[in-house]
Design a protein around this nucleic acid. Structure first.
Lengths: 207, 207
DNA sequence: CAACATACAAACATCGCTGTATGTTAATTC
DNA sequence: GAATTAACATACAGCGATGTTTGTATGTTG
């Protein structure tokens, strides 16, 4: 029954797809490896060959998501006179559009939002937190630049602006994913970002 | 061994306190009822006498949190010339202060943030979603009123303003609770709310 | 002060699921 | 083309926890 390397990769992919489906429907905690195996058309042996355990399987599910090119964005912001708000707003919009189009991303992020974050799954949360931290640092740096250009108005600090942006995007995504995707996230997100960035550049109030 | 009614209530309270402690430290999924029983100084028998199962225990933990007087707030907003933004900003601030002071609330909300939301725990999430929905409706109604008073500027709609407010408060609380409470949520929250409400009343931009 | 209900403790019955160890077949490797 | 090893399937061992049932002593009620 030995399969060729290409077939093995195929099997691994099938397992990931099955895990996505089963975990999404039953929840990570309540789906057994046997459930996943059946959905993938293999036995648990195959799963334990490709993945160490359930936590590893979930982690690989997360890793299977292609992440947006952050370096490319960073380079765009390098220029002295870069339009920071323009770039950030566009990037945020693109992220929401990416999520709106990619059902795999939707399901995997839903799984992660709803699963337990303690014990063996803590590594996954930490992973997400690390990425989040990097994003925050990049965002804050960008807002520092905008501030240097005299474009950050109101009582905003780079940190407060970055936090607010992240909360809005996170809130938007969480609500959309956990609540049955009952609105057009791309268009509503576009509007929300529009309003938010408008407030960043508002003049400092006198009061 | 039969205890008096007062003693029974006492036992129930001890179990809730133990559950809070144990679930917070080990996570709902990885703590056994035996763990909770030991921490409470009783046997599992006592727990199953007072609570149907683990999900019920967690739900009662959530129910043990006194919720802010929403009717009182609603009444404050009833007046024709009510200062909607002033009231909402104050209520938000008070909520953050309440959380900052109450360690039980902190631990219980942390537990709920990190636990699995599928299967038997779905009822708890639904409960929270219902409350969230009510809040959103109340918020939206309040912003409608503000709009009627001509106070809602920018490109804000009552709904978008309400959503943004909720995302900010949720983001603030989640980040604080999940990330080790590493900042002064009351003071930083106050600032964030200040900035946010300032943007609500900003004049509609010409661009 | 019976009779009953309450508030638990202790014992029981399983049971699903996990991880591993072993078996088997077919690709690779040399 | 023999030896090796990759890619699984199958069989196994064992646990840890859950919900329930039974036991029992003590409040409570009429």
């Amino acid at each position: 029954m030995r399969r060729t390397k290409a077939e093995a990769k195929e099997t691994r992919q099938q397992i990931l797809l099955a895990a996505e489906k089963v975990f999404y429907e039953k929840g990570v905690a309540h789906a057994s490896m046997e459930d996943v195996a059946r959905a993938a058309g293999v036995t648990r042996g195959a799963i334990y060959w490709h993945f160490a355990n359930r936590a590893d399987l979930v982690l690989e599910l997360y890793n299977s998501l292609p992440m947006p090119q952050e370096e490319l964005i960073a380079r765009e912001l390098e220029a002295e006179n870069a339009d920071v708000f323009g770039v950030l707003e566009r990037v945020g919009r693109e992220w929401l559009e990416l999520l709106a189009e990619d059902e795999h991303r939707q399901r995997i992020l839903s799984i992660l939002l709803r699963c337990d974050h303690t014990g063996e799954f803590a590594v996954i949360s930490e992973r997400q937190n690390d990425i989040d931290d990097e994003h925050m640092q990049a965002l804050e740096a960008a807002f520092v630049k905008a501030q240097g250009q005299g474009k950050l108005g109101g009582a905003w600090t780079p940190r407060s602006a970055a936090s607010m942006l992240r909360w809005v995007i996170k809130g938007l995504c969480s609500e959309w994913l956990l609540f049955g995707r009952r609105f057009d996230i791309a268009s509503e997100g576009k509007d929300a970002l529009r309003r938010l960035f408008a407030t960043y550049s508002a003049p400092t109030p006198s009061t």
